[in-house]
Design a protein around this nucleic acid. Sequence first.
DNA 1: TTATGTTGCGCTGACCCGAC
DNA 2: GTCGGGTCAGCGCAACATAA
Length: 239
Amino acid sequence: QGCPAIVLQSITHFGSRKAMDIEGLGWQTVQALLDAKLVTDYASLYELTVDKVAALERKGEKSAKKLIDNIERSKTAELHRFIYAIGIRMIGERAAKLLADHLQSIDALMNATTEDLLEVTEVGPKVAEAITFYFSVPANRERIEKMKRLGVRPQFVAAATGSALAGKTVVITGTLTKFSRDEIHRLIEREGGKAAGSVSAKTSYVVAGEAAGSKLEKAKSLGVKVLSEDEFLAMIGNA
DNA sequence: TTATGTTGCGCTGACCCGAC
DNA sequence: GTCGGGTCAGCGCAACATAA
């Protein structure tokens, strides 16, 4: 973690939309924070103040406050976002979600054995090894303990089981009018469904927005049910 | 071995907001 | 008000891991 480029990358990833969703924390801002020695890793983001950030070049009081608010808000991010954010090799959004659903706390993940991890759906030996290796590094464990001391409390949110989407795989294509991609993915997960990135014969529904692309064509060729945004919302009772 | 789905990356255009 | 830096959002593709 000593290499500046790796530190920059890890902090940027930590704050990205799919991870802790800290708006305003792009790589340029992270670079400026590193240059000013205001942060040394992603855990130290939680030690920042409005005054410190506002002192940076091209950062006013307003954007500094916004950034600090977003950092504060991330303290109670969903558990799977936190797992994805800490940057374990081979753990992306999907794997993080599966781990969160199975283990339900960061402590359980930190203390899980290879055998425990192999019980998680879709986790094989290589992924299990990557996780146990990550937590075998003292500096990684210390960063997480530091965040806990600074008030970071990732929340485990159980998916719904009685919804029309429970157990279904949904793929989004095109641009939706009422939701961003991220928002619709969260909605699908909250309803107990799975938001996949590509269409296959196992896909339950494809939701097509404006300017739908090749996924719509593939869905048609495979006979997968295609829904408009409104039809989809009506189906889950969110219209 | 094959089917399936995830990850990571590059690309593009739109948008936001502080500085001047 | 305009400019320009920074960020967001979406797509497509190749490589790869896993389950069956």
